[in-house]
């Protein structure tokens, strides 16, 4: 067993220092060490997007990032998106447009949608569909997710 490595990172605005195993992914550390279980584990090969988080200003599949790589970095997870007890406009739009069925993929979807609107405040349908293609929804809420993103954009953004 290789020795644990001390890392320091900012998660949802809060500084965290912890020792991580070199082979543990950011996903594992968020879920298991930091108890931030909103980020979900599914495919572990960067295909489903359920583990999407924001790392240093860009969304990534946290299953494909070693936790040590995030040393010194700034991470935002689904728990850090909205103020405590509230919803972002985008999160509200997801509910109003019926974009949530089982909900398991939704934290990843919301993180990806949030990123999309940061990059492209007024996206076209094609941009939304391309931008969200890294997040699988087996309940098949894609049309509603697109509607929610467009509605949030229309109403003033994320």
């Amino acid at each position: 067993m290789s020795p644990a490595i001390p890392i320091a990172l900012t998660v949802n605005g809060r500084s965290r220092t912890l020792d991580v195993a070199p082979h543990h992914t950011l996903l594992e550390v968020l879920r298991d060490d930091l108890a931030l279980t909103g980020t979900k584990e599914c495919c572990l090969v960067g295909e489903c997007g359920a583990c999407t988080v924001r790392l240093d200003g860009r969304i990534v599949d946290s299953c494909l990032v070693l936790a040590v790589e995030a040393d010194g970095g700034e991470v935002t997870t689904i728990e850090g998106l909205a103020p405590e007890g509230g919803l972002t406009r985008l999160q509200g739009a997801f509910l109003d447009k019926g974009a949530v069925q089982c909900g398991f993929c939704i934290p990843g979807q919301v993180m990806a949608a949030d990123d999309l609107l940061r990059r492209s405040p007024h996206p076209t349908v094609a941009e939304v569909e391309e931008g969200m293609a890294g997040n699988l929804c087996r309940c098949g809420c894609y049309a509603q997710i697109t509607e929610a993103i467009l509605a949030a954009a229309e109403e003033g953004g994320r």
């Binding site: 997870t77 728990e79 909205a82 919803l87 509910l95 019926g98 949530v100 909900g103 939704i106």
Partner: peptide, 10 residues
């Protein structure tokens, strides 16, 4: 949806 807020906030 009942339970929706929990689902969009993780």
């Amino acid at each position: 949806r009942v339970g929706g807020a929990e689902r969009v906030t993780g």
